[in-house]
Design a protein around this nucleic acid. Structure first.
Lengths: 195, 195, 195, 195
DNA sequence: GGTTAAGCGAGACGGTACGTCCTGTCTTGTC
DNA sequence: GACAAGACAGGACGTACCGTCTCGCTTAACC
């Protein structure tokens, strides 16, 4: 048996993450095993365990490597248009393999593994939320939103229904649905009587 | 060796579900195994597999057996008060072991297992959503909400941020947060200038 | 579901034994299970266990039911010819499915299960051996064999090599081999010097 | 939890075989399970399956490890004395646990499992038979046996009755019985009148 | 001739073991 | 010293049978 010379460090890291995404896309996260990733990547298991502490940690890194720069906000001056553009982009990312299904599975994993949950929040969720809040804050500072506008709650109302649809009802996310949420947030639901 | 006579059907079903909840509470869903449930319940593994096709299916039934009648809505005439009361109850249920953590884990499992996702929706999510929508519709029919009020979207805005907090940021759900959401929904976010 | 009327006693016994032989022939003794016999025979497992204490006991009865009268000896006056005829018959029986392979498997089972070993000896081996010894004794009494002729040993020399070939080397038993044994027994091996 | 470092290869092989013999002696072959051997030996089941394809294969190796050099023949010049000595040794080996009962069970297994039968023949039966035949042939070459002496048949007459007693009647093998067989083989049965 | 006990098919049940898969740790030898 | 390869202990999987049991239905035997 001949051996291809062992390449080191970043080289191996990258190959393993690429294989993880490939294999995850082919057989799904549930059936993905570190054993199989190692075999397919031509890597020793040790080489994987040296870098990642669990399947979830490996997948998180692999997914983030797909989206290095993150989803950045335009700032055209029109807060609604900017939010819409950004959320469209996010929704499109989630609709497209391999990101969508694997990201969904990763959130699933986070429900069983606190380390994954923490890392996911720290590395993806919070940064995205922060950008949204920052964009909203800019609009409020510019007087486009009332001074009492609840930035965090607005972020939650923008995100929550989408995650609900992704994780719970598992129906496809549409631009039209994003529009309805945006409209409700900024124009109100129009409930006649005052509560 | 003497044998206690085997008790049948519902008897065994109930014992297995009770054991599942006990063990799930003790060691967590991730470490829960059908093997261990069988051993603790004094049941053969086949007796479990005969009833449930997976760990997720078993847990779903076990959890639902805790909440037989479901969360029912009061109808005091005051839509906001009624929603508040009902959501408080739901949030309290989620805050209390064993339901909370196991329900969360079950949603996690639903991300890997379409059967669990479907069953969860059919048996828990959809019925609850339907009740909320029905209560909102009654209010709209009585003129308490504008005729254009988007019932489904309202339901999503009420649920989404809570599930977001449960599943993503994994912070505790508080009554105060529920109040903020309700206020936003019915009083609006107040984005003064341009809608 | 319609029920064929349950037939009793000997009827069921016979159906189960017939199924045992059928199934044993199809899939071999090793893979034969009481479960499968019951299913194929349309019998309850209890009905089998009521009659036989083990797979081996069931097979023994099933095999013996094939050979009810036993292998009886001719007595033509010529002891060698009579033995030859009888052993040819036995060897032919062993060469023919379903008896041969299942009988062999039954002896295999007897090595693990003393009850089967005892029953096999009592119901098959000893009666056959007794007949052989009786025929030899008649010949000795008629002066065809020396008065010191060791009847039991002769029986063992006739049977042993055949069972050796059946069980150990597992080569087919031939009439030619029977002839060689008979010749050695009655004409001697012809070893020159006196021991 | 601390881990003793895993010892490799021959070390594990030997420990597993030793445990197999121990456990086989304690509870008998029929009740012996690979599961139990693994547990007692502190080995993973896979470590056993990696080496042996079945319980029978494991037992065969384990037994042969007890009798590494095999049963070798003396050659004193006296063929009868040499055979007697060698067969006494074999009979004594079979009379003594753990070899006897487990060897008997292994032959039983060989009736259900062709792989075991083949391996048993190749690794134990045939080599022993060859030695016997070789010793007989030496005697014949030296003129101690007639030139027409049937070596293979003699071997079968020496072995057959003993295996018959071991496997079929399951009575203990005695030196006295060996003597009777040897006498019959070399002095003849003495059937006076018609050969 | 109606009742009743036994036989029966069906299959649930607790259990044991199977043979497989994967985990996370380790050892070995190569580069 | 990083690495590929893979052995190793261990745990769980889902399946197959074991022998015992419960359940109703059917049938023969006895009142």
């Amino acid at each position: 048996m001949t051996h291809t010379p062992h390449r080191r460090g970043a080289d191996r890291t990258e190959a393993i993450m690429r294989t993880t995404l490939e294999l995850g896309q082919e057989i799904g996260y549930a059936k993905l095993s570190i054993e199989a990733v190692a075999a397919r990547a031509g890597a020793g298991k040790h080489t994987i365990y040296r870098r990642w502490s669990s399947k979830g940690a490996l997948l998180l890194d692999s997914l983030l490597s797909l989206n290095e720069p993150g989803l950045d906000y335009p700032n055209s001056g029109d807060i609604v248009a900017d939010l819409r553009a950004q959320i469209y982009t996010a929704v499109d990312l989630l609709a497209r393999p391999p990101f969508g299904p694997l990201f969904q599975a990763l959130i699933g994993e986070a429900q069983h593994d606190p380390q994954v949950a923490a890392a996911l929040n720290e590395r993806f969720i919070t940064p995205q939320a922060d950008k949204t809040v920052a964009r909203l804050k800019a609009a409020r500072d510019q007087g486009q939103l009332s001074s009492g506008f609840d930035l965090d709650l607005a972020m939650a109302i923008l995100s929550g229904p989408l995650y609900f649809q992704l994780l719970i009802t598992q129906e496809p996310l549409t631009h039209e649905y994003v529009d309805r949420i945006l409209h409700a947030l900024f124009a109100g639901m129009g409930p006649q009587p005052q509560p």
